[in-house]
Design a protein around this nucleic acid. Structure first.
Length: 883
RNA sequence: GGGCUGAUAGCUCAGUUGGGAGAGCAUCGGCCUUACAAGCCGAGGGUCACAGGUUCGAGCCCUGUUCAGCCCA
């Protein structure tokens, strides 16, 4: 005999099934199996990562898809793996070294990298372990890491091919430099924040003594690297000054005044200082006018030799000193408050410096074209669709990608400089000699590649590329990529470009972009703000299934999720509800000899037919929602079915049958009960894997695990609209009686009589054959139905369509209460009748609206009018009694 | 400056081809009715941001405004 605890206790349940699933290799995808496939690669979490709510959300949605497809019988691969996260990981290990009083330079490159691998071995698996706890059905036998030998080979293959095609080059350009991480960053890796600052107006005297040009700048320290002042040729204020010379304050260098239409005459004084080595726009102007570039800072953002007297100062110290000196020399006209966007390193939040430097780049436009086309043509669908605009916007204005990083942890650039001829040799494997002159004096580039260079290959590198493996053939292109919008450019766009280039095909058919999880106030969760809700804590406190269901239920498309703990609490209660419904089932299945398979039986009740029809409808709703990535709709459909239909109605309605002495009828209902419960558990399994497995295993079923049990399918023949209509009528009666009971303050323990007066013979018949339902659920003393039912003078009544539900209340009647109740109802009905009358007497409505809409409204109007009459009659009797 | 998204009950939000404004939580009243008090039954509560327009009919479509958030330059 199976008995369940009174409350669901998730802890040991979760642990048990995780081990069981693993032992039976249920998440393993078989590349040799024929038939339909579904594949999906996890957005690889950083090895430095710990599961946060964003991961929990992202992976819950993926797991729902994976489990759903697997149960549908589709050959399903959910590819796991982690990202080496160059800068982030290097920072973590450097911090550890610092605590030991060491730097990475103290260790040297080789030893440092060893140390990172060591760290990875010890802590890099945390996030994977946490994903398992979340229930993620990833195929761990295929676990990959972006620095694996295989994936590194893919990286070298791509680098060399692109280089050979001329799509990778090295050159001097303005890049974003992080003085803390000591590396270049791509444009995307810079976060711009609005910051209060100042606009300094500085006097640049003309050499000929004829006054001065006033320039405005937010970064006065960069003036040391000025090589010109620019004006707009159309600016009347500066007419004739083009070609003259000004004297750079402090350093007294002579600068030409150049004319360039880039200069915005409306901004400031219309004169722009040009610093090609420290500003991307100035760099462009410098190129146009063949200006020299003077770099005045070192890699640590301290002023260098070019800065003259300011040499050795940090950039912000230099700013202060320069402002003071300008003031002293009366060259500072004014300082205005000015808010402007300041770029920060996305890893350490240090203010980045635009910096002239020799770096490697990927020429991106030729790769972007087909990637744009893939989305425009619909080969790749981005869901929700509005993200496509953002994608196009970025892709059409894409700039070359700076891929070299001056750090040690990552894929070292496979390019070697010849000590003899100074040329590059770029090769897949370490070359024995220079391919230009044959010299063996080769030195490999010390830089490593941007982490996103390897992530961009993820959908095919994880499947074995450049080897033509069976897995690659089977599972590429993948079906869905599920991620947040924050890495749409970083990752998604680049995967599309790489997939098309190297696989000759799109990397995935759908991109599902989900929202961001925020705190209850809508703030981004962050450790510094202290508003983080830790998924692991929530899982521990409420159960993993409760957290997962909460996330799914809030996953409405295109809207951020404000998560508060009480919402998880609510879905914990839902778990418990399901648990107790199952508990009820087990209590009533003790003598049951059948299985979960539905048996055809003449002995099924109206409630049995009804719940089977409702189940079938729910199956359709869940499939439809999941196909459209509407996770919240699927979750809501399940929630409503389980709580409001199965628990609130079906269980209550079937109690009498389950206690029946008629063993044939009892068996038929037991069969429906267990069938519906099992189907429901399967439907719910992708959302709540643990509790569903726990209950399912106790049922009389076939199979190893619910994880591989067949997902219920919609069957149009199972729709039973007659049962639904009939039971709806029964529910209407019960609701009417309950309403009267509630409004008239009749205790639930008090059994009341009920009369139903109706001329509708079908309604009469159903009410009579279903009398036992009404008697039990409305807690009746007795029930009388028919056209000739006599309505006692002292009674409460409710008017339904085609029937009046009457509760005789001799001795219990509170006429005042009943009058209030009826008047309220009457008011509502009258309001609606006026609205409908107006509508129906409007000739253009009757003329132009579709006939079925008009018919519906006419019918409603008739119904309401009858109801109004009856309510009026009832009200009159009350008034008489009160008089 | 360009673009995107949102504004619906006290709170958080659903509302998919335009045709009866919904859920959860919170509130109020009544219940330990033998699966569940993490529960059951009943009730109250909204000019769908504002102003126009299209339509027989608009929360939904169009235009404008205000406010909020995000992305890019």
């Amino acid at each position: 005999m199976i008995q369940l605890d009174k409350q669901y206790q998730p802890h040991d349940v979760e642990k048990r099934w995780i081990e069981y699933w693993d032992k039976h290799r249920l998440a393993h995808a078989d590349e040799t199996r024929d038939g339909e496939t579904f594949s999906m690669a996890i957005p690889p979490p950083n090895i430095t990562g710990s599961l946060h709510m964003g991961h929990a959300f992202n992976n819950t949605l993926q797991d729902i898809m994976a489990r759903w497809q697997r149960m549908r019988g589709v050959n399903t691969l959910w590819q796991p793996g982690t990202d080496h996260a160059g800068i982030a990981t290097q920072n973590v290990v450097e911090r550890q070294l610092k605590a030991e009083g060491k730097s990475r330079q103290d260790l040297g490159r080789e030893k440092f990298i060893e140390r990172v691998w060591q760290w990875k071995k010890e802590s890099g698996g945390n996030i994977n372990h946490q994903l398992v706890q979340l229930g993620s059905s990833l195929d761990w036998e295929r676990d990959r890491f972006t620095m694996d030998e295989g994936l590194s080979r893919a990286v070298r293959e791509v680098f060399v091919s692109l280089y050979e095609e001329g799509l990778i080059y090295k050159g001097d350009y303005i890049i974003n430099w992080c003085p803390r991480c000591h590396t270049a960053l791509s444009d995307l890796e810079v976060e711009h924040q609005e910051k209060p600052g100042h606009l300094y107006h500085i006097k640049y005297p003309l050499k000929d003594g004829d006054g001065a040009l006033i320039v405005a700048t937010t970064r006065p320290e960069t003036m040391l690297g000025d090589t010109a002042v620019a004006i707009n040729p159309e600016d009347p204020r500066h007419k004739g000054k083009g070609g003259k010379t000004v004297i750079l304050p402090l350093l007294k260098r002579e600068l030409p005044i150049i004319e360039d239409s880039y200069v915005d005459a409306e901004f400031g004084t219309g004169a722009l200082k040009v610093t090609p080595a420290h500003d991307p726009n100035d760099f462009e102007i410098g190129k146009r006018h063949q200006l020299p570039s003077i770099n005045v800072m070192g890699p640590d953002a301290r002023m260098n030799d070019e800065a003259g007297p300011y040499k050795g100062l940090d950039r912000f110290e230099a700013r202060k000193a320069i402002v003071e000196d300008l003031k002293a020399q009366d060259l500072l006209v004014k300082i205005e408050d000015h808010t402007h966007k300041v770029g920060h390193c996305y890893r350490c939040h240090t203010v980045v410096e635009p910096y002239l430097s020799k770096q490697w780049f990927v020429k991106t436009q030729p790769l972007a074209k087909p990637a744009i086309e893939a989305v425009r043509s619909g080969k790749i669908k981005i869901v929700p669709k509005f993200w496509e605009n953002t994608y196009f916007e970025w892709m059409e204005n894409i700039r070359d990608w700076c891929i070299s990083r001056q750090i040690w942890w990552g894929h070292q650039i496979p390019a070697w400089t010849c000590g003899t001829c100074n040329e590059f040799t770029v090769a897949r494997e370490t070359p024995p000699a220079c391919q230009h002159c044959g010299s063996t004096e080769l030195v490999q580039e010390s830089d490593v590649l941007d982490t996103w260079f390897s992530s961009a290959l993820w959908p095919f590198s994880t499947l074995g590329w450049p080897e033509q493996t069976e897995s690659l053939k089977k599972f590429y292109p993948t079906s869905v990529l599920c991620t947040g919008f924050d890495i749409l450019f970083f990752w998604v766009a680049r995967m599309i470009m790489r997939g098309l280039k190297f696989m000759g095909d799109i990397p995935f058919h759908h991109v599902y972009i989900h929202a961001l999880i925020r705190d209850a106030e809508g703030q981004k969760m962050s450790k510094t703000k202290g508003n983080v809700i830790d998924p692991l804590v929530m899982m521990d406190q409420y159960g993993t299934d409760a957290l997962r269901f909460t996330l799914a239920a809030f996953a409405a498309q295109g809207r951020d999720i404000k998560l508060a703990e009480d919402r998880i609490d609510g879905y914990r209660n839902f778990c418990n509800k399901l648990w107790n419904a199952s508990r009820f089932a087990f209590m009533n299945l003790e003598d049951y000899t059948g299985t979960c398979a539905l048996e055809t039986s003449k002995h099924q009740s109206l409630a049995d037919h009804w719940i089977l029809s409702r189940l079938n409808r729910t199956v359709a709703d869940v499939h439809q929602a999941l196909e459209a990535f509407r996770f919240n709709d699927a979750a809501t459909a399940l929630y409503k079915f389980i709580w409001n239909e199965f628990c609130d109605w079906y269980i209550e309605l079937s109690k009498s049958r389950l206690n029946s002495q008629n063993s044939v009828e009892k068996y038929a209902t037991q069969n429906v009960l267990v069938h519906v419960l099992e189907a429901t558990l399967k439907l719910l399994h992708p959302f709540m894997p643990f509790i569903t497995e726990e209950i399912w295993q106790k049922l009389p079923k076939d199979g190893t695990s619910i994880m591989t049990a067949p997902y219920p399918e919609f069957d149009p023949h199972k729709e039973d609209s007659e049962a639904e209509t009939h039971l709806q009528w029964v529910m209407d009666i019960i609701n009417a009686a309950r309403n009267i009971r509630g409004e008239m303050n009749l205790k639930p323990s008090l059994k009341i009589p009920l009369r139903i007066k109706t001329d509708d013979s079908e309604k009469e018949l159903i009410a009579n054959t279903s009398a036992h339902y009404v008697i039990e659920l409305a807690r009746l003393e007795d029930l009388e139905v028919g056209p000739s039912v006599v309505k006692p003078k002292v009674s409460a009544s409710s008017i339904l369509s085609g029937a009046e539900v009457i509760v005789p209340l001799a001795g219990l009647m509170d006429f005042g209460e009943e009058k209030k109740r009826v008047e309220k109802e009457l008011k509502k009905v009258e309001k609606e009748i006026i609205f409908l009358s107006k509508k129906l007497s409007n000739p253009s409505f009757v003329d132009k609206a579709p006939p079925e809409v008009i018919e519906k409204d006419r019918h409603k109007h008739k119904d309401l009018s009858e109801k109004q009459t009856k309510l009026q009659v009832h009200l009159n009797t009350i008034d008489q009694a009160l008089a």
